[in-house]
Amino acid sequence: MDWKQLPFLWDRLQRSEKPVVIYGMGDGCEKIMRVCGEYRIPVAGIFASDEYVRGHSFLGYPVLRYDEAKQAFGSMIVLLAFAAFESGLVSKIKRIAVENELYAPDVPLFGGGLFERRYIKEHRAELEQVYALLADARSRQVFESVLAYKITGCIDYLLACETPKQEAFDQILRFGPEECYADLGAYDGDTVVEFVRVVNGAYRRIYALEPNPKNFSRLVRGCAGLPEVVSIQKGAWNREETLAFHAKAGRSSAILPGAAQSIEAAPVDDLIEEPLSYIKLDVEGAEREALEGCRRQILAYKPKLAISAYHRNEDLFALPLQISAMRADYRIYLRHHPYIPAWDTVYYMV
Rank of each mutant, 00 (worst) to 15 (best):
G60C: 03
R34Q: 14
A44N: 05
E99M: 12
K92V: 06
A81E: 03
R54Y: 05
V98R: 03
A72P: 00
L80C: 09
G26E: 01
E51R: 15
A69H: 00
K31H: 12
V53M: 02
G26M: 00
G45Y: 05
E86T: 04
G88W: 00
A72M: 11
A72D: 06
R95V: 03
A72E: 13
A83W: 05
F85H: 15
G88A: 04
R54F: 07
Y39M: 06
E30Y: 06
L89Y: 01
E30D: 13
A97L: 01
G55Q: 10
R95C: 04
E30K: 15
G60F: 02
Y61C: 01
H56V: 00
L59F: 11
D27L: 11
E68A: 13
L59A: 15
P42K: 13
D67C: 10
I41G: 12
S75A: 14
Q71R: 15
E86M: 02
F58K: 09
G88P: 00
A44T: 01
M25T: 15
S91P: 00
A97T: 02
I77S: 07
G26N: 04
I77Y: 09
C29V: 02
C29I: 04
I32M: 10
E51P: 02
L79I: 06
E30T: 11
A81R: 07
K92Q: 14
R95W: 04
R34I: 05
G28V: 09
I46S: 11
H56E: 05
G26L: 01
I41C: 13
E38W: 13
P62N: 11
E99Q: 15
A97I: 00
P62T: 07
L80N: 07
F85C: 08
V53Q: 03
V35T: 13
D50L: 04
G88Y: 01
Y52K: 13
S91C: 03
V98F: 01
R40I: 00
Q71W: 08
F85N: 14
I96A: 11
I41K: 12
A69F: 00
A97V: 00
E38F: 09
A83Q: 09
R95H: 09
V98E: 05
A97R: 09
C29Y: 02
G45E: 05
I96P: 05
P42V: 09
A97N: 04
F82P: 06
K94W: 08
